[in-house]
Design a protein around this nucleic acid. Structure first.
Lengths: 141, 141
DNA sequence: GAAATTTAGTTACCTAGGTAATTATATAGG
DNA sequence: CCTATATAATTACCTAGGTAACTAAATTTC
């Protein structure tokens, strides 16, 4: 029953890492899902909600919620597009100012979590996971 | 930024697998969290809720909910223990009768999901993940 | 043995993410 | 041009899992 153990361990690992991320972000008043959006926006600049959903493989409704919370906190703007159905999401100056603090907190926690995983194991793991995920997503619509 | 990719991919993978598990269980009226409990009970027999929580690394409140739903569906019994705070959870005959159907559905989906991952990669992955998780949990509480 | 502390379980409420249904805008077809 | 279809986003509601506060029973401590 190695199959079962594979799925089980992956699930546990994912939950543990998510909890740790939230723990690191808590002092800055952010949650993991919000950080994921901010991180992408910092790299890509302005994106529509649809583009954010596609990039993060998240359905539209939870994305709406996460963005609305970020808007309320003043970290994100929703700019109507030329196509009036779309809303372009951008980081505010306030978010850009705080960004490096957030990034530091997250990086510190990530370092902590990766301390027990040798560099070579990290690379193997990311390769195995990435390739598997790509295979799984191949042929999904 | 390989760190980020590692966490991101693991998160995505976990979500995808969870969704697929739920898809497989939907026709039998079960959810993934319920299946996890049933699976453990089938192997271990009678367990208290605390023991289930410890085994699945889940907090007590979600476990209460999952069990209550299983009770309502008639798949699980809560038997008061000698220690009257405890409740021993057991599968009902109805659950035992359905078990192999559920197991088949889950195994079929798991096979499908693992199709794109060579045996050797499966073993590497489970080893890497398991060891990492153990390291992370070492020294927790 | 009575009072204080610990523990098992529940309740209430939060975020994360999913589906179904709805709304408003764009785009295609006749 | 006008109708039908497709698409972006939202709303409502579901499961999964987390924390905080509570209850009731067991265990320590004095």
């Amino acid at each position: 029953m190695i199959n079962h153990q594979l799925f089980h361990t992956l699930h546990q690992l994912s939950r543990h890492l998510t909890n740790k991320l939230n723990e690191a972000l808590k002092p800055m008043g952010l949650y993991g899902s919000q950080w994921a959006v901010i991180f992408v926006l910092k790299q890509k600049g302005s994106l529509t909600q649809k583009e954010l959903c596609d990039y993060l493989f998240v359905e539209a409704p939870p994305m709406t919620r996460t963005i609305q919370r970020l808007v309320k906190q003043g970290y994100v703007r929703q700019v109507p597009g030329q196509d009036k159905r779309e809303r372009h999401i951008q980081l505010t100056d306030e978010a850009l100012q705080e960004y490096s603090n957030w990034e530091n907190a997250v990086n510190e926690m990530n370092q902590e979590l990766l301390k027990s995983l040798p560099q070579s194991a990290q690379e193997e793991l990311v390769t195995l996971q990435y390739n598997w995920l790509q295979q799984l997503l191949k042929g999904v619509d």
